[in-house]
Amino acid sequence: MNPIRPSYQALDLARQVLRIEGEAVLALTSRLDDTFLCALELILNSRGRVIVSGIGKSGHVGRKIAATLASTGTPAFFVHPAEASHGDLGMITGEDVVIAISNSGESDELLNILPAIKRQGAKLIAMTGNSASTLARDADAHLDAGVAQEACPLNLAPTASTTAALAMGDAIAVALLDARGFDAEDFARSHPGGSLGRRQLKIIRVREVMRTGEAIPVVPPEANVAACVCEITRGTIGMTVVVSTERQVLGIFTDGDLRRAVLKHPDLHGLVARDIMTAKPRVMHPDKLVDEAVEMMERFKINQIPVVDDDGILVGALNMHDLFQAKAI
Rank of each mutant, 00 (worst) to 15 (best):
Val174Lys: 08
Leu124Tyr: 00
Glu41Gly: 08
Met239Asp: 07
Met284Phe: 10
Gly193His: 08
Ala148Gln: 11
Pro153Glu: 12
Glu185Asn: 12
Arg119Glu: 09
Val25Asn: 09
Asp96Pro: 15
Ile92Thr: 13
Arg247Trp: 04
Gly312Cys: 10
Leu28Trp: 02
Ala27Phe: 11
Ala227Met: 12
Pro115Gln: 01
His60Asn: 10
Leu18Trp: 11
Val241Ile: 12
Asn2Phe: 06
Ala76Trp: 05
Asp275Cys: 08
Thr93Cys: 06
Arg199Gly: 07
Leu40Trp: 13
Gly181Ile: 01
Leu69Cys: 10
Met277Val: 05
Ile172Cys: 05
Thr29Pro: 08
Leu28Asn: 08
Pro153Ser: 14
Ala84Gly: 11
Ala122Pro: 01
Leu258Trp: 00
Glu214Thr: 13
Ala24Cys: 04
Ala179Met: 09
Ile43Ala: 10
Arg19Val: 07
Thr35Pro: 15
Arg207Ser: 09
Pro153Tyr: 07
Arg205Ile: 04
Val308Leu: 02
Ser71Gln: 02
Ala215Lys: 15
Glu292Phe: 04
Ala160Lys: 00
Ile4Gly: 06
Pro81Met: 00
Thr29Tyr: 09
Gln149Ala: 15
Pro217Leu: 01
Gly312Met: 10
Leu11His: 13
Ala179Glu: 02
Arg207Met: 04
Phe300Gln: 09
Glu222Lys: 00
Lys57Ser: 06
Ser131Phe: 08
Asp140Val: 03
Phe77Pro: 09
Asp186Thr: 09
Met210Leu: 09
Ile313Arg: 08
Glu23Cys: 10
Ala279Gly: 14
Ala328Ile: 08
Leu201Gly: 14
Ala164Trp: 04
Gly197Tyr: 03
Glu185Asp: 10
Leu37Ala: 15
Ala132Pro: 08
Arg198Gly: 09
Ile204Leu: 13
Gly194Ala: 05
Ala160Ser: 07
Met284Val: 14
Gln304Ser: 15
Ala175Phe: 09
Val219Ser: 01
Glu231Ser: 08
Gln248Ser: 12
Asp309Arg: 05
His269Glu: 04
Cys152His: 06
Asp12Ile: 03
Pro192His: 10
Pro192Leu: 12
Val308Arg: 00
Val97Ala: 05
Gly121Thr: 02
Arg137Ser: 04
Ala279Tyr: 10
Glu95Trp: 06
His142Gly: 06
Val225Asp: 14
Val307Tyr: 11
Ala84Lys: 06
Ile43Thr: 13
Arg47Tyr: 12
Asp255Pro: 07
Arg299Ser: 07
Leu289Gly: 12
Arg19Gln: 13
Leu271Trp: 00
Val147Trp: 02
Asp287Trp: 06
Leu176Gly: 10
Gly94Tyr: 06
Asn2His: 10
Leu176Lys: 07
Asp275Ala: 02
Ala171Gln: 07
Ala279His: 12
Glu109Leu: 04
Asp309His: 11
Met127Ala: 03
Ser161Lys: 05
Phe78Pro: 15
Leu32Glu: 04
Ile43Ser: 11
Gln200Ala: 15
Thr240Lys: 03
Asp108Ile: 13
Ser244Ile: 07
Val219Phe: 04
Gly197Gln: 03
Gly251Arg: 03
Lys288Pro: 05
Ile232Glu: 12
Gly193Cys: 03
His285Ser: 14
Pro266Val: 01
Ala66Arg: 02
Asp309Pro: 03
Arg234Lys: 11
Thr278Arg: 03
Asp257Thr: 00
Pro3Phe: 07
Asp138Glu: 14
Ala76Cys: 08
Asp144Trp: 01
Gly54Tyr: 03
Leu166Arg: 15
Gly87Val: 03
Ala139Met: 02
